[in-house]
Design a protein around this nucleic acid. Structure first.
Length: 546
RNA sequence: GGCCUUGUGGUCAAGCGGUUAAGACGGCGCCCUCUCACGGCGCAAUCCCGGGUUCGAUUCCCGGCAAGGUCACCA
């Protein structure tokens, strides 16, 4: 068969020779050991936790090694295209401090552009044509119906499905048949003529999994779809070669198609990049565990964390603890340290899929928030409230001075120990509500109504905002003693039966009356922040209707 | 079903021929304490199973089993 003639018929016109592209996209001049990694999302605009997981790994590897992280958009499937998606991806990742050195909508060095696969059609066709000329690719005229019939047949006979060996009908079409189909205007795809044999195993080194066994590919996979656009596999080989990627870190779900990629790189005469297949995030679902899914699990969406008001750094810290097992230990020794200072290693990446653990994230989140100073916290909460808060919550920020005092108290700023009362912004806003709004409901008092009223009236009598905390607490003790409660905790513990209760119970009455809650930070400071008028109003109100 | 990957407490995991089998989260208890939070101390809980190899296997080999992934003109 005259392959050159066929190639010209299938992809007419002059295409540059491979050498042209080798020169146009020369090997990068980077220091020894520098890795070039990439993120290659399809432009759906939906970027989730799994994407972030891989993104952090790619970013860390590139930047730890003095290399490059770039963004390539895999827009070969029109159905997946969403307007503004690329900007959304960039913004979402920037939120987690992941920045690209080059790529779509990034600007900078244009040497390896374009970064949209749709704009690279000529390159793919040039190499497809070359493959046809070499007899390594052929047109396939099978219709979708024929293909699914074939698949059905294979399934019924319990054979491996796909287009391969004796099932690859168009692989052995005669020259006449091909031209007859072409003349008839039949649409066609271009398939790889696979030379592989699945009996043959190939041992490869995966950067995260170590030694892996790969079965040779024997599928005549589609490389150019009927619209002349490449499939993922073909575009991957060409793009990662000419963009000079050194390390492809991608999800484990790609491991199954690695044989295809191996054969494609070989057929094209390209040196393969190194691969690292990372595990996916799992979720417990009843008895079994499964990959986090877009439809079922809201926590997969990055939007979920923004809405809840997780501090972005907390999410990143959690991702890093899952990504590198020694990260947690390092971070324990260097709390609040620059995350980029951690010596991230691909080899340290986990080989098995981790169950996503919200408890752990929450713990990390509390710790991260406790690390902030009140100004940073204020800015974070304010931003959150602007976007997701209620009108009332937005108003909390009208008096910044007061908010700063509230935050300082709730975070334990100035005290010996930081407080860790909230894990997210939404929770924090709920938590500090009583500083800004009168409590609508009050938790149950343990004391009886008469006692509550009496205690409150008594306290109100002696209350003076000028008191310091010592004097203030002294007065609480006096009230306690006057109503049959132990003023000193140790007295109460020594003989609980001699008292109605202890100061703690009296403090509880005051606490619930002013905040509505039985548990709050230091009550003295709360009254100071509320001010005399508000404090008296709340206590008085509670005294009348406990 | 074929192929590939993975199996250490409930979760994330360190260890990789000899260890009382780290640590973190969660759970429970105690202490501190005007409540809560913080902090401190402690407890319960783990090497998937069966064969080898070895003086000795959680660690090495083989075989099971289980879980996950994947089998498109989607990426």
């Amino acid at each position: 068969m005259d392959y050159r003639k066929l190639a010209e018929r299938l992809l007419p016109g002059d295409y540059p020779a491979p050498e042209f592209y080798e020169e146009k996209y020369p090997p990068r001049t980077l220091p020894a050991g520098a890795e070039v990694t990439r993120l290659a999302p399809s432009p759906t605009g939906f970027i989730h936790l799994g994407n972030l997981f891989a993104a952090i790994a790619n970013e860390r590897v590139a930047h730890r090694s003095g290399g490059i992280l770039y963004l390539r958009i895999e827009d070969t499937d029109l159905k997946r295209k969403v307007d503004g998606a690329v900007e959304a991806v960039i913004a979402a990742l920037k939120y987690f401090d992941i920045k690209f050195d080059e790529g779509a909508e990034i600007g900078g060095d244009e040497t390896y552009a374009p970064w949209y696969q749709r704009k690279r059609a000529e390159i793919y066709r040039a190499f497809a044509k070359k493959l046809i000329e070499e007899g390594r690719a052929y047109p396939c005229f099978c219709t979708e119906a024929e293909l699914s019939a074939l698949r059905e047949e294979q399934t019924k006979r319990k054979e491996i499905t796909g287009y391969y060996g004796k099932y690859a009908r168009c692989r052995n079409l005669t020259e006449e048949e091909i031209y007859k189909n072409l003349d008839a205007g039949k649409p066609f795809v271009l398939r790889l003529r696979s030379l592989g044999n699945p009996e043959n195993k190939l041992k490869l080194r995966d950067a995260v999994k170590g030694e892996i066994t790969v079965t040779e590919n024997d599928q005549d996979v589609v490389i150019l779809k009927s619209d002349g656009i490449p499939t993922y596999h073909f575009a991957h080989a060409i793009d990662d070669h000419f963009m000079r990627t050194t390390l492809v870190i991608r999800g484990e779900e790609w491991l199954a198609s690695l044989p295809i990629h191996v054969e494609l790189f070989d057929a094209l005469g390209f040196r393969r990049p190194r691969y690292g297949h990372n595990c996916s995030l799992m979720k417990q679902d009843g008895e079994t565990r499964r990959k986090l899914s877009k439809r079922k699990d809201p926590e997969l969406s990055l939007e979920f964390y923004r809405k809840e008001g997780y501090y972005p750094r907390a999410v990143k810290v959690y991702m890093l603890t899952l990504l590198n097992s020694n990260f947690e230990e390092w971070y324990l020794k260097n709390p609040g340290a620059d995350l980029n200072g951690f010596p991230f290693k691909v080899e340290k990446m986990s080989k098995s899929g981790a169950l996503f653990d919200l408890d752990k994230l929450n713990d990390i989140s509390r710790n991260e928030l406790a690390l902030l100073d009140e100004k940073t916290m204020l800015a974070f909460l304010k931003d959150w409230a602007e976007e997701f808060g209620t009108e009332a919550q937005k108003n909390y920020f009208a008096d910044e001075e007061k908010m700063l005092r509230v935050l300082a108290l709730c975070m334990g700023v100035g005290g010996k120990k930081r407080r860790k009362d909230f894990t997210t912004a939404s929770q924090a806003m709920e938590y500090i509500k009583y500083f800004f709004e009168r409590p609508e409901t009050h938790e149950e008092y343990r004391a009886g109504k008469e006692t509550v009223s009496a205690v409150l009236r008594d306290f109100l009598q002696g209350y003076s905002p000028a008191d310091d905390s010592q004097v203030w607490f002294g007065k609480v003790k006096e009230v306690a003693a006057a109503h049959g409660y132990a003023a000193e905790m140790r007295d109460y513990k020594a003989s609980p039966e001699s008292y109605k209760g202890s100061v703690a119970d009296v403090a509880e009455i005051l606490r619930i009356a002013t905040t509505g809650r039985a548990n709050t930070p230091d009550l003295y400071t709360i009254m100071q922040i509320l001010g005399e008028g508000e404090t008296r109003a709340r206590l008085g109100c509670a005294a009348e209707q406990p």
